[in-house]
Amino acid sequence: MRVGLFVTCLVDQLRPSTGVAAVKLLRRLGVDVVFPETQGCCGQPALNTGDPELARKAARAQFRAFEDCDWIVTPSGSCTGMMRHHTPELFRDAPEAANAAHLAARTLEVSEFLEQVLRVKALPGRFDARVTWHGSCHGRRVARVGDSAERMLASIAGVQLVPLPRAEDCCGFGGSFAATFPELSAAMGATKCAHVDGTEAELLTGNDTGCLLHMESLFLKTGRKTQVRHWLEIAEEASRERAPC
């Protein structure tokens, strides 16, 4: 079984630790994950800013990069949604429709891969923290990832997962939206921050680096102490072998 990591642009450039965590966790679970080096962007920023042609171009590069992988795993619900839902739509009635369908059928958010392919019931190790979860809107509504990442997270000993009120509301990131309307994006984030405060969680986690970087930037700006980490970093840290005392 050849498993290719699609690391995503944001993780690659701004939070590589999440990609490293994905590789290490998967290796500890017995998966020899590869990183196809010609991979690029899923094309979502292009599609969302009105450039479907560029999105198609990006998708074609992905078809080639992941050609020989049985599974494509990614730490982002949003990119999963792009590759699983929008990419086949972009190539509907096009010669590459089969490539798009093939890409979509093999793409899984990491937690989905753990549950559906590896049949993991509980993740190893321990991580003591009060944690709340913000799943991305695209993961929820476009990729329809469901609760697999929350289940995986909650399966780690010591993790106290506190439900976030209005968890289904957008945090205000929205890719280019955050750059186009910074104040509005921050105001939406401030509403989300207030909900996070209410949970008294010490750590906010989720499955999209875009949302998490956005929330972290607001926490830092407002002097909040809440930590922000991708759930894979928590899972990886928990799974590290500890020296016996």
């Binding site: 450039q13 590589p16 104040e183 921050a186 930037s217 700006k221």
Partner: peptide, 18 residues
């Protein structure tokens, strides 16, 4: 953007390099 958020610190190496 900078007025409303703390912009991310760029890590020393990308995942590709790591």
């Amino acid at each position: 953007s900078e007025a409303v958020r703390a912009l991310p610190v760029i890590p020393p190496q990308s995942f590709r390099e790591l």
